[in-house]
C-alpha cells in the first residue's frame, strides 16, 4: 500500500511536469488547480487497475508491458472526454504524453527493481559469510 501511494504521488508529479512542458510549447503559463486533482485521480485509478493486473502472470514481459500501456492510454483518453481535455490538447498529443510518462516510470521502476535484487543478493551473501 505504501509503495502504491508513493508510486501514485511520483507519477502525478511526473505527469504535471510533462503537462507543464507541453503547455509551455503551446505558450501556456498556468496549470489549473482542477488539473492537479484530475491528474491525481487518474493516477489513483490507473494504479488500482495495475495492482489487479499484477495478479496475472504473463508469459512474455513485452505482452505485459503492452497491455498495461494500452490500459493506461484508454483511461487517459476516457478521462480526456470526462474532463474536456480535448479543448486544449489533441488526443495524439495526449497519447504521446502518456507514452513518455510511461517510459519514464518504466525506467524508474527498473532502477528500483535492480536495487531490490542487489539488496537480496547482498542478504544471500551475508548469510553465506555467517
Amino acid at each position: 500500500m505504501k509503495k502504491m501511494i508513493l508510486n501514485i504521488m511520483a507519477t502525478t508529479g511526473i505527469s504535471l511536469v510533462a503537462l507543464a512542458l507541453i503547455a509551455t510549447l503551446y505558450d501556456g503559463t498556468l496549470i489549473c488547480i482542477d488539473t492537479v486533482f484530475q491528474m491525481l485521480g487518474l493516477n489513483i485509478v490507473i494504479y488500482i487497475g495495475l495492482y489487479f493486473m499484477d495478479y496475472i502472470e504473463y508469459r512474455y514481459a513485452l505482452l505485459e508491458t503492452g497491455l498495461k500501456l494500452i490500459y493506461i492510454i484508454l483511461l487517459v483518453l476516457i478521462s480526456g472526454f470526462v474532463w474536456d481535455w480535448y479543448n486544449n490538447l489533441s488526443s495524439a498529443v495526449l497519447i504521446l504524453m502518456t507514452i513518455g510518462i510511461f517510459a519514464v516510470c518504466v525506467c524508474l521502476d527498473t532502477i528500483s527493481l535492480l536495487s531490490e535484487v542487489k539488496t537480496i543478493n547482498g542478504l544471500i551473501e551475508g548469510e553465506e559469510h555467517v
Binding site: T65, N121, I124
Partner: peptide, 11 residues
C-alpha cells in the same frame, strides 16, 4: 544462491 534480472525483464 542469487537472483538475476534477465534481458526480458524477468527474474
Amino acid at each position: 544462491i542469487g537472483i538475476k534480472t534477465l534481458v526480458n525483464s524477468k527474474l
